[in-house]
């Protein structure tokens, strides 16, 4: 009995003492330590790395030119015949007779591009608005936040559709802008909230008591401490912006030039034949879901890892 009790006390003592690996680690480093052990993060990371790698090398990976109508002779519109799987074309062709696998692979490029750029632009806009509102407060805060509230009150996809519809000529660029604008209010609201919490925090008061200038207070003391939730949101937004962009393309608000493949647009093109050729809908939809899942898993595990209550 005494032995086990002693062991327990020893274990307790050990757990409260700083471990050697703990010394010299910043917040980011200790978050990374916890991330590495999280299976959800590993799954998300594998999906994401695979997806990004495929997107980068897809032009060389694709067995055929995604725009060439190699199998056009097998397409019979009247009888709803679409090239089936065959040697050299493992997934067959699309309704225009283009190699489906190649289009799927190359399509990842557009998806990655839309996701990354829409998120970055949304993040940048949200950072500016959120910092302004959170740092200045007062009427600036009121004006910015009311504008944000108005945007948030419209369902995001409806808002994206309305913004895309404003452009005379839809293109991949207009999709990115539409999706990005939809994300801005989310980032702005999130950042403003954590900035306000920082503004009243002890360490900001301490910095003010040392005469630190307002600019340095905002950019050195408030902003870096407010970024955690924003970074998490950014990974989650990558997923939603991929889905939103696919939805816009699916609705015909994307790039009208279908020689550049895009998953949402492929899904839209397969829509009329979904009962006779469900595989043509399944593949692009599956890709969108898996990629979105990958980013979501990373985002969720990042949120857990950055939560200060979980430290150590």
């Amino acid at each position: 009995m005494t032995g086990t009790k002693k062991q327990r006390i020893d274990a307790l003592a050990e757990s409260t003492v700083d471990k050697p690996e703990d010394s010299g680690v910043s917040l980011a480093a200790s978050a990374w330590r916890r991330l590495r052990r999280n299976p959800a993060f590993l799954v998300g990371a594998v999906i994401t790395v695979l997806f990004v790698a495929v997107a980068l090398i897809s032009p060389w990976l694709a067995p055929h030119d995604p725009a060439a109508r190699d199998l056009a002779d097998q397409v019979v519109k009247a009888r709803n015949e679409i090239p089936p799987a065959q040697p050299g074309h493992p997934l067959g062709g699309d309704p225009q007779g283009r190699d489906f696998l190649s289009r799927l692979l190359v399509g990842s490029q557009q998806t990655l591009m839309v996701g990354v750029f829409a998120t970055l632009i949304g993040l940048a806009g949200g950072l500016v608005l959120g910092t302004l509102a959170g740092a200045l407060g007062g009427w600036v805060d009121s004006v910015v936040m009311r504008a944000v509230d108005v945007m948030l009150s419209v369902p995001s996809l409806l808002l994206a559709v309305s913004i895309s519809a404003l452009f005379a000529r839809p293109s991949q660029f207009t999709v990115i802008i539409a999706v990005a604008i939809v994300q801005i209010p989310i980032f702005a609201r999130l950042l403003r909230g954590s900035m306000l919490a920082q503004r009243g925090s002890d360490h900001v008061l301490a910095a003010r008591s040392l005469g630190v200038r307002p600019g340095a207070i905002v950019f050195r003391h408030m902003l870096p401490n407010s970024l955690g939730p924003v970074i998490v949101q950014a990974t989650l937004v990558l997923a939603t912006s991929i889905i939103d962009a696919a939805a816009l393309s699916f609705l015909g608000l994307g790039n009208p030039d279908d020689s550049v493949p895009e998953w949402g647009q492929m899904l839209g093109g397969s829509q009329q034949v979904i009962d006779s050729h469900p595989a043509l809908s399944f593949w692009p939809a599956g890709c969108i879901i898996v990629v979105a899942l990958g980013f979501t898993l990373i985002g969720e595990s990042l949120r857990d890892a950055l939560d200060p209550k979980n430290r150590r």
Partner: peptide
């Protein structure tokens, strides 16, 4: 809480 947690 009086020290900035993200700066050395």
């Amino acid at each position: 809480s009086s020290l900035n947690p993200v700066i050395s």
